[in-house]
């Protein structure tokens, strides 16, 4: 992972063990729209591909 990305994602709330909800995907393999805790983000798929996510409970995310 590019050195800055891990720090940046953590500062935006994406940290190990954090629940993440995908709200939508952009057209033509555009960015994805995420909700993490109380924050909504867009993240390019290239960058998102570097984050390991486990499938979780599909119920609404509670921060």
């Amino acid at each position: 992972m590019e050195p800055g990305l891990g720090h940046r994602l953590e500062a935006l709330g994406i940290k190990p063990g954090q629940q993440v909800k995908v709200l939508r995907r952009g057209w033509w393999s555009g960015p994805i729209h995420l909700r993490v805790g109380m924050t909504e983000l867009m993240l390019r798929r290239v960058d998102a591909a570097r984050v390991v996510v486990l499938a979780g409970d599909p119920s609404p995310v509670n921060p």
Partner: peptide, 11 residues
């Protein structure tokens, strides 16, 4: 661009 694009989508 040396920076990954991670942008906040504020309310």
């Amino acid at each position: 661009s040396e920076e990954a694009l991670v942008l906040e989508l504020p309310p």
